[in-house]
Design a protein around this nucleic acid. Structure first.
Lengths: 228, 228
DNA sequence: CGCCCGCCTTGACGGCCGTCAAGCCTCAGT
DNA sequence: ACTGAGGCTTGACGGCCGTCAAGGCGGGCG
């Protein structure tokens, strides 16, 4: 891929790449390739041999698994400026641990595993940034495991709604659901029917109001308390 | 802590520490402390400020969280020669993400965060070993999230039993449950009653035989197929 | 030996939530 | 405007599994 100054500036602002020298960034970009995906197009499948990890520049990608029974669980929704599949960097026999598919038209940058490992070796700061990123993912996993194991579906839906809010949100607050409800349902591990019923039940208790993909939380603190 | 040649040899065989030079290992041990815990003694709590990570030398430690409703989910059971809580190394404001408590009398080695970070900076090989370890944990988390989200309790119990087997197990095979059944139940996110009923139901279908804490899988391949 | 206590099992019951099926709403295309 | 398709909602029903309560079993201790 050709070095491109807009792209170079973009990388400078990403915590994974901001510690790189100009020369390292050049090498990284030289080994990177651009990918475009239509909505619904697969990127990789669970078990595929893995030589690249990715930075999403626009659109939306879902990471998911399919159960033996055929149900889909969305493990993570990727948003622009997020990287994913970094964990294949350190596997002995690198294979993607999930499936990935665009759910909106997407532009990606694909980084070469070997090239990036070479750069890591020269840059402890970048090494540490990667580890910090992996630590954040591990944290998020603990939270998700706890939520799945210990809480009912109502709790998980509320948890998801609260996660859409900025940290400083107070009082009345309206959010727009980021995707179709069937996708959100797969993300919080319930059926679309149960999601629908849960939102209705929250409305009837005057905790939220739903209008299409606009959800108004009538009292953020009250909803937060509602989960304890 | 005094350098101790038996301990030094032990570290040499641990993948996290085997890439260290003698001098680095000396420094590491100088900053490490020994801990002994009685059964039931807490080591740290979810949210505590974190300056150490640990290597278990003997006994058994559980990592767990308590839900708002008071239920306990065991996130991981630590066995001798395993390290845990490495992820606090890379946090900005390091706090333990779970509670830890000995469930059998335990001997531990506690490593100092700052000292180990200093050593990492000098040893890319160790850096990479840490990252590989974190990658394995992330992998295990994906698996656990999938299992919790997509499978019923019967599946999770069978999954757990199969996880006790060596990879090459075939045909008839007997395993000893590693701890009390109430602990195992919390680990697979069911109640002790449900665990008991599930084991009984598997027995009635002639898939396993249960005698106290000895479980005989009558046909390993058949049980594996049973989950697909 | 007898008692108690912890651990496990068993049974009864009920609620959560998944499944199936039908119906509604919106929107694009003719 | 009509039609059809896709997404969402609603209702009926049933099974899984958690809760509560009682009872069995074994080990430690007086």
């Amino acid at each position: 891929m050709q070095a491109d100054s807009a792209l170079a500036r973009e990388l400078r602002h990403h915590y994974l790449f901001c510690a790189l020298t100009d020369a390292q960034q050049q090498r990284l970009l030289a080994s990177a390739t651009e990918r475009r995906l239509a909505a619904g197009a697969p990127l990789f499948a669970h078990g595929d041999a893995a030589e690249q990890f990715f930075l999403l520049r626009s659109g939306c990608v879902k990471l998911y698994r399919i159960s033996p029974a055929g149900d889909e669980k969305i493990m993570r929704l990727i948003r622009p400026a997020q990287t994913f599949a970094e964990s294949i960097l350190f596997m002995d026999a690198p294979r993607y641990p999930v499936c990935a598919e665009a759910i909106e038209p997407a532009e990606l940058l694909a980084f070469d595993r070997e090239s990036f490992l070479g750069i890591l070796q020269e840059s402890f700061a970048t090494c540490r940034a990667v580890m910090a990123q992996m630590t954040r993912r591990i944290q998020a996993h603990w939270d998700e495991i706890e939520t799945l194991a210990l809480q009912n579906s109502r709790y998980r839906v509320v948890h998801y709604l609260l996660g859409l809010l900025p940290a400083e949100a107070r009082g009345r607050f309206t959010v727009t659901l980021p995707t179709r409800k069937v996708v959100i349902a797969a993300h919080v591990a319930v059926t679309p029917e149960t999601l629908s019923r849960t939102l209705r039940s929250l409305s009837e208790e005057s905790l939220i109001e739903v209008a299409g993909d606009e959800v108004t939380i009538l009292d953020v603190e009250k909803l937060r308390r509602h989960m304890h």
